[in-house]
Design a protein around this nucleic acid. Structure first.
Lengths: 397, 397
DNA sequence: TCAACTATCAGAAACGTTTGTGATAAGCGT
DNA sequence: ACGCTTATCACAAACGTTTCTGATAGTTGA
């Protein structure tokens, strides 16, 4: 016995199927279908934000006029414009970027995918990207993959769904498949890789001097007298591991030092892996007298272990690491590093991306290499005369 | 002599004003207005992303059917649903979140405003927020104020324009006016403050035990025998400075130690301000024998200076700091800190916000205080017998 | 003084979704 | 065999902008 919600009569009402789990009715008299609602189910929560229509109504003009007035277009009399601007302030009108972006077909937003903000490199790079973005009128949307390939893929999907104008991507350490990147390219969405790049696909990239940096660090160790040089890398498949290993090998080769497999240690690049690596090195039949770590953080962890065992740094064992940060500077002994200037990398990456967004047709897969700098500190600097053995001895080139 | 672009005749065409800087024409014959275009000006760059309409056309069905099929609604036959799902994969369809959010009136996005990612506290808090967000189906949009009040206000406006569902805010150190926060509240947008909260407005907040932490740190110094305790704070107006100063004072009062203005040092909380602070303290007529710093980073900078002058830590001068991180643990001597668990703060903040988003009507301005923990390390732990003076001497309570 | 022009605004379409409502063919019971 | 029911789908409105097109009153010039 249902009353029609339109003509209010009972006679003509018949059931007419279930729709989305609810009973539907049909009133023959007024020819009207309807569903009973749970009362409280309705009311779609209307966001009570001021819209351009509110402003228009408030002034008794058209929405299009408000839009043009606020956006500084012509076709608007100074009087109207003033009135609109004042009304916008009075009503605290903030344009809905969703609607704006939907209409314009661009969001002025850049999506950034990084593995982990807690790594100082990414924190600094991110901060510099933000700075550039602010100055160029872009917004930034950051996603963390937490070093997980699945989340990285999810992140990129999310950012694409958000219709970001472009992507800045640094891969997680476990990423080995790059199908998700290829799909981005297929959609013609500008993308720039930075730091942890993907060498399988030709995309614009910003990298640092991985090879040169490793080479210089290892060469420095050699020039300080080290003869048995260990290297602590990340995962074996990891591009950065590979290229930095090459730098290591090249330096050894230059000075005719044999490359010994035992001195190459692969890690998962987690916190505290430095201790494990040290454990490994120190238990070798002939422990190294110099160690190069791909992450300076791990180098410091190794030094902590070394100090626990009263090993003299750098006399008995010297340490160098890739990447500078506060800890390297303040730790005792301070760590010799190759500074790869995270902020420059971030800056270059976002600038390159913005350039690519603007000339979307002519994507040039440029590869920018940011110049780094060797900073020699106490962890490897052997003061003349202090050394207990053959230090200062130079190899012929 | 303009040819009508519609009827292609010349006779009826007359000029009809300037419109947006371009000459407009009117054709009397076909009653049609038109403007000459620069050819290349046209073509609004159509984003070539697959839309729901593309999928619908591809299958020869209606867009609404596609939407319902993909969203698991009823009313769709299994056959159709399968076909739609397959087509979505084939065409690599990704829903446009802009359109979705615009339609639904919510974005499932949370806006986060932090002063600086480079501070380990915020990096860690952010990472834990991300984790929770991923698990609860929210996205996170991060903005950095770079410790600048103006940028902070801009950030919040941007996030509101993006129609985020809620805000997580930690103020910049120079923020003194909170009108922008009041406007957020007026719009009935859920907001939760964390860490650097605003005590002028009643909003939900997540804080740490600033008072208790400071108290315990200073009490610890006292119990280790320190009698002249300096404190390095942030800006004077800064809420965190004030509350932590109170903890400092309370501890001194408990042990009947007079509060001396000279021992209270305000700073701008910049990197390397620790050195300045140390300079100040050491040049006092009676330099402190224990220093508490609001930022553990600054405490470590002070220790660096102290070591340069061969001051024995902790025997001649002890140090403690608020907040733990890697540096505190690995530096030598390791720094005694009050760990305020950044990840717990982040987690609690986002959970509280999500709760408030869901029950938007009943905003309870809860204040959560995350329990911290005193970690005693070498920078203040006086080993019995090692101290050069009155250490171990306990005050009566 | 009348046609041509200009300034100013309104209306409507479009962006890509979701969802309420209408429509149709097939299934079912009496 | 007929009316009621169900399953399935299409259509249209709405979200809040921007922008294209159309309309009108006033202004100018010969």
């Amino acid at each position: 016995m249902q009353r029609c919600i339109k003509c209010n009569s009972v006679d003509g009402v018949i059931k007419s199927g279930f729709l989305r789990g609810k009973q539907r009715f049909f009133c023959k008299l007024c020819d009207f279908y309807f569903i009973l609602e749970n009362e409280n189910t309705r009311l779609p929560q209307k966001t009570n934000q001021t819209t351009i229509l509110d402003v228009a109504k408030h002034l008794g003009i058209a929405a299009s006029t408000v839009s043009r007035a606020l956006n500084g277009k012509s076709d608007i009399s100074p009087f109207t414009r003033k009135a609109v601007q004042q009304a916008a302030i009075d009503l605290d009108y903030k344009p809905n970027l969703l609607a704006q972006s939907l209409n314009k077909g661009k969001t002025n937003t850049i999506g950034v995918v990084i593995p982990n903000v807690e790594l100082p490199f990414f924190a600094t790079a991110l901060a510099s990207m933000q700075q550039v973005a602010i100055n160029t009128g872009y917004r930034i949307m950051v996603c963390h993959s937490s070093e997980c390939e699945a989340i990285e893929k999810l992140n990129i999907e999310t950012l694409i769904s958000c219709r970001v104008d472009g992507l800045l991507v640094s891969h997680s350490k476990e990423t080995t498949s790059f199908e998700h990147i290829k799909r981005v390219i297929a959609k013609n969405i500008p993308i720039v890789h930075f730091d942890r790049v993907c060498n399988e696909i030709t995309t614009p990239k910003v990298i640092h001097e991985d090879f040169k940096g490793s080479f210089e660090l290892v060469e420095h160790l050699i020039l300080q007298g080290c003869k048995k040089i260990g290297v602590m890398l990340g995962p074996e498949k990891f591009y950065i591991s590979q290229i930095r290993l090459e730098g290591y090998k090249a330096a050894l080769q230059k000075y005719n030092i044999p490359i010994i497999e035992e001195y190459i240690y692969y890690s998962d690049m987690n916190k505290y892996d430095g201790a494990k690596a040290f454990e490994y090195f120190i238990n070798l039949p002939a422990p190294p007298d110099g160690v190069f770590s791909i992450l300076s953080r791990n180098a410091i962890e190794m030094m902590v272990e070394a100090k626990k065992r009263h090993i003299k740094i750098p006399e008995e064992m010297a340490f160098v690491g890739f990447g500078d940060d506060t800890l390297c500077e303040l730790f005792e002994p301070s760590l010799t590093v190759f500074n790869h200037f995270p902020s420059k990398v971030g800056e270059a990456a976002i600038n390159l991306l913005i350039e690519n967004i603007k000339n979307k047709n002519s994507l040039i897969p440029a590869v920018l290499s940011i110049q780094g700098e060797l900073i020699i500190r106490d962890s490897s600097r052997v003061k003349t005369g202090v050394n207990s053995w053959s230090v200062g001895q130079k190899f012929t080139e």
